[in-house]
């Protein structure tokens, strides 16, 4: 028994190393940097230690607003992805044969094509003279073109388009994990399709929805290209702010401080989310 445990531990070493190398160390580097001082002529910041980067963040409401905007965009996008992604995921899991393959390819394709290509494509679609506006005006829904680009709406559309596949795949996974027998049992006990969906399928895929939500939310927090391009440089989010500070102004301490504050906020958000009834404790009893 002891031996097998040791073996299992040994198998974890590569993963642990990767994790430490890619996540833990950079995290502490950034944490350390956030208390240093930017030195002119050097990318690497230096002492004296200071909390001025943190003070600067809260100096006025600009950066808190950037963070707030990012959180809001991310939550909104994740929410929209749930609403749009769930039915699609459900439909695909119920599809069969060739048609299912086609649908899967359609979902996965955007993931392979790269963020920039997609975003540029979307940029073309969403311009005030682009096909979306033309269609809406042709259909009589709009009288005048609406400017999507450079607005939060445009950014949310872009983020949703970019990250919806993650939601669909995660939810699909969860729905597929429900044994057929369980659904048949519901049928058998007298549940019609609607009842079965809301009482069995939906609750049992809840963890998948939660996972998808977290995934999309996290991706949105990190997004840079989409807000930059579709926001036309007007929608400042954490990604663009950190890029500006770190890569253009070489202000790693401040960029690190923004990142630390973001991480802290995300932890708080998830801690709060975990305490909500029906999300935390009970899941354990079901899945364990």
């Amino acid at each position: 028994m002891k031996k097998s445990v040791n073996k299992a531990n040994a198998l974890l070493i590569p993963l642990t190393l990767v994790f430490v190398l890619l996540f833990i160390i950079p995290f502490f580097v950034l944490f350390y940097y956030s208390f240093l001082t930017r030195s002119s002529g050097q990318v690497v910041p230096s002492t004296p230690y200071t909390v001025s980067s943190y003070l600067r963040f809260f100096e006025d409401s600009y950066y808190p607003r950037v963070v707030g905007r990012t959180l809001w965009l991310s939550l909104l996008t994740a929410g929209i992805c749930v609403v749009l992604g769930y039915p699609v995921a459900y439909y695909i899991t119920k599809a069969r044969g060739y048609w299912k393959t086609v649908l899967m390819v359609v979902v996965i394709l955007p993931l392979v094509s790269g963020v920039i290509t997609q975003t540029l494509g979307l940029y073309g679609m969403l311009t005030s003279y682009g096909p979306v506006n033309n269609f809406l005006m042709w259909a009589g829904i709009l009288k005048e073109p609406v400017e999507f680009l450079g607005t939060t709406t445009g950014v949310v559309i872009g983020l949703t388009q970019g990250f919806l596949p993650y939601m669909i795949l995660t939810v699909m996974n969860a729905i597929q994990a429900i044994p057929d027998n369980v659904l048949e049992a519901a049928d058998n006990l007298g549940a019609n399709g609607v009842q079965r969906f809301f009482l069995i399928t939906l609750p049992l895929s809840k963890t998948g929805v939660a996972a998808g939500f977290v995934l999309v939310f996290g991706c949105c927090l990190n997004s840079y290209t989409t807000p930059l391009l579709l926001g036309r440089g007007k929608i400042s989010v954490i990604g663009t702010a950190i890029y500006q500070q770190a890569m253009e102004l070489y202000n790693w301490p401040f960029a690190s401080a923004i990142a630390m504050i973001l991480i802290a906020l995300v932890l708080v958000v998830f801690a709060l989310g975990n305490t909500l009834p029906g999300v935390g404790g009970r899941k354990k009893a079901v899945s364990g």
Binding site: V182, A186, L204
Partner: peptide
Amino acid sequence: VVFQNYALFPH
């Protein structure tokens, strides 16, 4: 129906 794997609703 009593299923082979019982098919109880886990939630």
